[in-house]
Design a protein around this nucleic acid. Structure first.
Lengths: 129, 129
DNA sequence: GCCATATATTCGAAAACATGAATATGTTCA
DNA sequence: TGAACATATTCATGTTTTCGAATATATGGC
């Protein structure tokens, strides 16, 4: 099936697709439950068309899948572990806490720690519609 | 210090920097031990100047650090867990093995499984200098 | 200082990406 | 069918990235 090189190329594609703040955010929002475009648009404070564009990128890279429900289209993560992986990266790689990488190896643990520490500081950072 | 939004932006930058096959490869090569540019160039089969360019991107995103040793410049991962994280992503997200994501949470375990399964299939995939 | 080696940077053209605006498609309901 | 809502796509444009080629900088040995 897939040799190492193939996996690497596909992984690079995946990483590139995720390499945008809005799209990282989308993955976070889709963690756990599927959501429709309007909800995502409202939550992120990003126009609907732009959200659809982002979702198209994520769909092309197999990050998300969608299903239609009436007029709405619901998006979900194609791989349930993706969000945890992303958040793990954020906690251990960006936020300079290698100690988390050592001891907290399950996604849930990482997520909890991250949220506890940074949630309230983020109140003011909402974009405007 | 860093709110969630800041972490997200920096993470997106990190992901973008990693979103190139050669650079994913570089991270893998630097896993465990530092290496000089020539060695990386030879191993990847990518010209020296191009490797330096890639390394500059990775350096700018804080993925790697370098130190000079005589005429050589040795590169290493800025965060030791980065390579493991990348490989974890490759195994669980790209290669469609969510079961690895569930049970194998330590970087070393993931790496071993991946190497065992895909190493030999990759013999032919070497680029030419 | 000069030469060879090792690495980094600059340059330029093509390709890819980001983004707002406009428009198109699909769905429900009356 | 037509209107309203939900989502997707297309378009045009400015920005960034890619990559080879050429060039520049740094180091050690003579």
């Amino acid at each position: 099936m897939a040799g190492l090189t193939d996996i690497r190329n596909e992984l690079a594609e995946l990483l590139k697709a995720l390499g945008h703040p809005d799209r990282v955010r989308l993955v976070e929002e889709l963690n756990g439950s599927e959501k429709d475009v309007q909800t995502l648009s409202d939550t992120l404070g990003v126009r609907q068309a732009r959200v659809s564009q982002h979702l198209a990128v994520l769909r092309a890279s197999n990050v998300v899948e969608d299903r239609r429900d009436g007029r709405h289209v619901l998006y979900r993560l194609a791989k349930p572990t993706l969000a945890a992986w992303i958040i793990l990266g954020g906690a251990t790689l960006v936020d300079a806490r290698p100690e988390l990488g050592e001891d907290l190896n399950t996604p849930d643990e990482i997520r909890l720690v991250l949220e506890e520490e940074s949630e309230e500081k983020d109140e003011k950072n909402r974009k405007k519609q």
